[in-house]
Nucleic acid binder design. Structure first.
Lengths: 99, 99
DNA sequence: TTGGCATATCGGAAAAAACCGATATATCTT
DNA sequence: AAGATATATCGGTTTTTTCCGATATGCCAA
């Protein structure tokens, strides 16, 4: 875990919001063939909810992925992003015991 | 706790380093009348260790204080900054259970 | 294999953060 | 009161981040 990269990823209101949505995808996204709890949410739906352009949201999600906070799954033409629960668990412990 | 402000405060290598030093002040700073474990480290010594200018370090410490990650104590002409352990405890829990 | 749709990447303008030197403020000494 | 020392604040330059439109890539259906 690159702590600086992680904190930078978390230093943006929109990205924090996205992570909160992904905490409970079924509540915030409407299914489209795949279970959201399984694969997460797709770029398009996330984009609509935050109101930024497609390219910006795509970059944000890639950035969150690089930081290890979400994982990506390609299903056909869609990419689903899912919260990486373990990363948050680890980060929480790191903040308390090492940082 | 303003989470965005906190994460922004943590998004800088030097500030992360400062927090690590303040985690165990007696190991990293030489005393000068006050117990570091009691009050923390003073701006001058922190400045020397990180090699940036006095004004930059002063601003960094003020920023960490605004984010609630450190507390400040004035003793005569010195200001001592101390790690706010409780804040990190809280932040760790927040990351795991809410973020 | 062509067109449509979802996503990714690129290049750049605008906003924010990093960091500095100069200067102000506060405290101690004499 | 004046000088010395520690810290805080201000104004400005450079670097990074934000966010966009345009375009490229990947996948599917006709």
């Amino acid at each position: 875990m690159n702590e600086l990269e992680v904190f930078k990823a978390l230093s943006n209101q929109t990205r924090l919001q996205i992570l909160r949505w992904l905490r409970d995808p079924d509540k915030h996204f409407t299914p489209q063939g795949h279970s959201f709890t399984e694969v997460g949410g797709c770029v398009g739906q996330i984009q609509q909810k935050c109101g930024l352009t497609q390219s910006t949201v795509s970059e944000y999600l890639a950035l969150l992925q690089r930081a290890g906070l979400v994982t990506a799954t390609r299903r056909g033409q869609w990419t689903y992003y899912k919260r990486n629960d373990e990363a948050f668990e680890q980060l929480g412990k790191f903040v308390q015991s090492t940082l």
